[in-house]
Amino acid sequence: MNTSGNGRPSVDIARPPRDPSIDHIHPCRACDVRQFSVCNVLDAPDLQRLAEVVTTITLPAHRAVFHEGDPAEHLYNVTSGCVKLYKLLADGRRQVTGFLFAGDFLGLALEDDYAYSAETVSEATLCRFPRRRLERLLEDLPKLEKRLLGNASNELAAAQDQMILLGRKSAREKIASFLVNLAGRAERRGQPSDPLPLPMSRTDIADYLGLTTETVSRTFTQLKTQRVITLLPGGMVALTDRLAIERLASGG
């Protein structure tokens, strides 16, 4: 049993059984995260149509998916690994705007060019959709179009939360909020949230939270010393005192 963001216990999410009617579809038949992805709203015939326009790609760690300003020719769905989104500021600094995991969608663009850059944090596998072909397909798949619009709304809400995180919280509160958010996302995907994998570097976290790398490292050490978290091998973090870190995240 896990603990929800408000401290109350929550029941683990069970993965639904695979639908045998789509077992013949490639590459969707082998996708373990379809139930968390935008395509989970589609039935077997519509999923077949989507599968006809998709290409599966695997990229090593630290490889660009696309750069800010590139023509927005493709959209992507992460099926494994971690991808970071970032923008380069006018003074050359980098602002990481998000981390995406299996089931997350990226590449939505209002203009003809990407408004941000995307780079793999770890080795990642993605479904790649040609933008124009997908847009034409959406005319016949209103459920998928609605789901993508929902994704865009969620991105806007996440951006608003990020503004509060950067402007109103201390370093300890930012780190705590970051960990609680990642744990909550893992739980919603039905994945273990404790210990929590942190594939991103301390510099990536610093660029996301508006801190220095030294401050991030020092804060992690402080939380470890206070036995709020435990730093484990392989970039894993155990939330030793979940209630304490949730109180810290909420400013308590």
Rank of each mutant, 00 (worst) to 15 (best):
Ile22Leu: 12
Glu111Ser: 13
Leu50Cys: 10
Val237Glu: 03
Thr203Trp: 07
Thr125Phe: 07
Gly7Ser: 01
Val228Gly: 01
Arg218Gly: 10
Ser122Tyr: 04
Gln162Ser: 13
Phe220Trp: 03
Gly5Glu: 11
Asp241Trp: 03
Lys87Ser: 13
Asp23Gln: 05
Val121Thr: 09
Leu166Met: 07
Glu135Pro: 06
Asn77Ser: 13
Lys87Trp: 06
Glu68Asn: 06
Asn77Glu: 12
Leu148Arg: 09
Ser10Met: 11
Leu166Asp: 01
Asn151Gln: 09
Val228Trp: 02
Gly167Tyr: 09
Arg168Thr: 14
Leu126Lys: 01
Val65Cys: 02
Arg172Asn: 04
Ser122Thr: 15
Arg29Cys: 10
Lys143Leu: 15
Val11Arg: 09
Pro233Phe: 10
Arg132Glu: 13
Tyr86Leu: 14
Asp204Asn: 15
Asp112Gln: 15
Glu52Arg: 09
Leu209Thr: 11
Leu141Gly: 03
Asp241Gln: 12
Gln35Gly: 08
Val41Gln: 15
Glu155Lys: 14
Leu126Val: 06
Glu187Arg: 12
Gln191Glu: 13
Gln226Val: 04
Pro142Val: 04
Ile245Asn: 07
Gly92Val: 02
Asp112Ala: 15
Leu243Met: 09
Arg94Met: 01
Gly167Phe: 06
Asn40Leu: 02
Leu165Val: 05
Pro45Ile: 01
Ser153Ile: 10
Gly251Ala: 10
Leu243Gln: 14
Glu139Gln: 10
Ser153Pro: 00
Leu198Lys: 04
Val237Ile: 13
Arg94Ala: 02
Phe36Leu: 14
His62Tyr: 04
Gly235Trp: 03
Ala90Glu: 15
Glu52Lys: 00
Lys87Gln: 12
Arg247Ser: 02
Val228Lys: 01
Ser80Phe: 02
Glu214Lys: 12
Arg172Glu: 11
Leu182Ile: 10
Leu138Thr: 06
Leu50Asp: 01
Gly210Pro: 07
Gln222Asn: 12
Thr79Lys: 04
Ile205Leu: 11
Thr212Gly: 15
Ser122Gly: 06
Val216Met: 11
Ser193Met: 11
Thr221His: 15
Glu73Ser: 02
Thr58Tyr: 11
Ile164Cys: 07
Ser122Gln: 04
Asp113Tyr: 12
Arg49Ala: 08
Asp204Lys: 14
Asp91Met: 05
Ile205Pro: 09
Gly92Thr: 05
Ala183Glu: 11
Asn154Met: 11
Gln35Asp: 15
Leu88Gln: 15
Ala238Asp: 00
Ala118Ser: 03
Asp12Lys: 08
Ile175Glu: 07
Pro130Asn: 08
Gly251Arg: 04
Thr120Pro: 06
